[in-house]
């Protein structure tokens, strides 16, 4: 898929949010879209997904099947989880049996089984986000567009996102993902697109080293010493959390990393 000289603004006399974006992503490739808040990351993703139409330029060779996970899932709908996902599977072109099978499979995989009969507005933010993830995967997408997919997810599902991405890539699909939580470190082979002032540039690694994430459990009393030692050895400490099942309670200051 290629974005060719894409310009976009939301209002006729408004400022250009995207200015002459020209970028290509091929089958089996994943790109992380980076940038400060409000620079146009979501806009770029929506143009790629086909939600927004460029004011100038064009998007070519977009795969036929696109899965889009919006930043905020629209939970204000009068459906249960099962009914919504079944409806979306049918909308995506699956037959009744295939839709039921896909919904059962993805609700199991994403830990939504207990919520199948729950109405969407009653879901927590994280659970609703899982429904958003499920609807994008019901029919294997040729292009998967994830806008802050880790937002609100529990630890187990956060681990699952790179798996889903890997599956799309393995099927020769392409993936675009934005993230401001530092979770994309889980995608060491990803290209890195930096959006600033409406333009896009690609960050190139100074070395050819790929990066892996190793999670280490240490007694709480030895956290400070371990973190200091790892940093002294040149490792990047991404975060410190209280135990294996809870969210981060402390994050290293930006200046301390690596």
């Amino acid at each position: 898929m290629r974005l060719e000289n894409v310009w976009l603004r939301y209002h006729r006399r408004g400022p250009w949010v995207l200015r002459g974006i020209d970028v290509r992503i091929g089958p089996g490739e994943v790109a992380i879209v980076l940038g400060r808040n409000g620079v146009g990351k979501s806009t770029l993703l929506q143009v790629a997904a086909g939600v927004l139409r460029p004011g100038q330029g064009r998007v070519s060779d977009r795969p036929e099947r696109v899965g889009w996970v919006p930043e905020r899932f629209p939970a204000d709908q009068p459906f249960t989880v099962t009914r919504y996902l079944t409806g979306m599977a049918r909308v995506a072109g699956l037959g009744r049996a295939a839709a039921d099978e896909a919904v059962a499979s993805w609700t199991d995989r994403l830990g939504l089984s207990a919520f199948r009969s729950v109405r969407l507005p009653e879901l927590s933010k994280g659970t609703a986000q899982k429904v958003g993830l499920a609807q994008a995967m019901l029919r294997p997408p040729g292009l998967l567009v994830l806008d802050e997919p880790w937002e609100g997810l529990d630890a187990a599902t956060r681990e699952l996102v790179p798996e889903l991405i890997a599956e799309v890539l393995a099927a020769d699909g392409s993936v675009l993902v934005s993230d401001h939580r530092g979770e994309t470190v889980r995608l060491p082979a990803a290209r890195r697109w930096l959006v600033a002032d409406g333009s896009l540039s690609e960050e190139t690694s100074s070395t050819d080293e790929t990066i892996a994430v190793v999670e280490v459990a240490v007694p709480a009393a030895r956290v400070a010493g371990t973190v200091a030692r790892l940093r002294a050895e040149g490792h990047q400490v991404l975060r410190v959390r209280s135990d294996a099942s809870t969210d981060a309670v402390a994050e290293p200051a930006a200046g301390e990393a690596r």
Partner: peptide, 16 residues
Amino acid sequence: VEPDVQRRLAQVTVGV
């Protein structure tokens, strides 16, 4: 009645 984002999801799925 349909939320804006849901309308966009439908657009991505079936086309404009």
